[in-house]
């Protein structure tokens, strides 16, 4: 199965970013579905055979609707969930053969920024203590002053006054909580940060300042982002490449501009056409997609999208379409895409 555009193509597009930092290989995460007696009656395939490569310095967007498995994908890469199958190779090291604890030590430079950073901070801890914690865990050789210095540096980097260190998480605004969440993972000097819905729940004016901050930090600390979001207009604006997920599978992946201007997979097309564009054509005038995604515990045979697809044919029910890298800078998992 071809899963990815050959890395050489990325290399020709962006020679400076050709070095891979993360390889995800046939990653699967299945959750058991149990009946009332605790017997397993099936699997919920939250992430099902997902492979892609993230090059150093790029921003890869992962988009899809709720329940498509994009958050589970991020958490499985991070090691918060144990993968059911497959491997992730981060900075050249496989993590498949380690137990979760060891794998996390190896992945100090891989960090995860939570969707709701307010909830990811201990409500009974002052922000100062939460910011010290990662270094206490990973760099016990640092003394208090050294840690405090790094914490101050990170607070400056995320544009928060140091007086906020003495506040509790519930005493600051949502935008500020996000900055604290970022400062917290930045203390460990990560090279790749998985940003899980980093702008959801933020007001427009705050969202813009947070996105600016992401770009500043990326430049300053030489970061790579895996940007998980349902907001396509933001993904279009800041991501170099984008992977579209539907029910646990990547159905299309490639360069952002190519995918947004010429989507090959019918699902990507529907998704893009659903986004309201101010001043553009009104979605309500010509939106076509009917129905809702099927229950992920009871997936249709063959192509997962065929039940909602306007182009679906008999063949679509027989086999799952593989991701075809048939277009420059773009792969799609559809038999009918040309």
């Amino acid at each position: 199965m071809t899963l990815e555009p050959p890395i050489s193509r990325v290399a020709t597009d962006r020679p400076e970013t050709a070095k891979p930092i993360l390889d995800v290989l046939s990653l699967r995460k299945y959750f058991p579905i149990r009946n009332a007696w605790g017997r397993r009656k099936g699997w919920l395939k939250a992430v099902d055979d997902v492979s892609f490569r993230v090059a150093k310095g790029e921003i890869l967007g992962v988009v899809g609707e709720s329940g498509c498995g994009k958050s589970t994908l991020g958490k499985t890469i991070m090691g918060i969930h144990q993968p059911s199958d497959g491997d992730t190779i981060f900075e050249g090291r496989s993590t498949a053969n380690y137990d979760p604890g060891q794998a996390r030590k190896l992945r100090r430079h891989l960090q995860y920024a939570y969707q709701d950073p307010g909830a990811s901070l201990d409500p009974r801890w002052k922000i100062r203590r939460s910011l010290h914690e990662p270094m206490i865990i990973h760099q016990p050789e640092l003394d208090r002053d050294q840690r405090a210095e790094r914490v101050s540096e990170m607070m400056r980097a995320v544009n928060l006054p140091e007086t906020h260190l003495d506040l509790y998480p519930h005493e600051i605004s949502g935008g500020q909580q996000r900055r604290v969440g970022l400062a917290r993972v930045l203390t460990l000097n990560p090279s790749l940060i998985i940003l899980d819905e980093p702008t959801s729940g933020l007001d427009l004016s705050v969202q813009a300042t947070i996105l600016t901050l992401f770009m500043d930090l990326k430049r300053k600390f030489d970061l790579t982002y895996l940007f998980i979001s349902h907001d396509l207009s933001i993904v279009r604006m800041i991501c170099d490449r984008v992977a579209v997920m539907y029910l646990g599978k990547v159905v299309e992946i490639g360069d952002t501009e190519i995918i947004f201007s010429n989507p090959k997979h019918p699902y990507t097309r529907s998704l893009l056409s659903a986004v309201p564009t101010v001043g553009g054509r009104r979605v309500t005038d010509d939106f076509q997609l009917e129905g809702e995604p099927p229950n992920p515990g009871n997936m249709p045979s063959g192509c997962r999208f065929r039940t909602r697809c306007t182009m679906a044919q008999a063949d679509c029910a027989k086999a799952e379409p593989p991701l075809r890298a048939d277009w420059p800078g773009q792969s799609a998992a559809c038999f009918l895409a040309e």
């Binding site: 991070m78 918060i80 939570y114 909830a119 990811s120 201990d122 914690e133 990662p134 865990i137």
Partner: peptide, 11 residues
């Protein structure tokens, strides 16, 4: 989430 976040940090 904050417990999961600490575990994810390697606590």
């Amino acid at each position: 989430t904050f417990v999961e976040a600490s575990v994810a940090l390697g606590a």
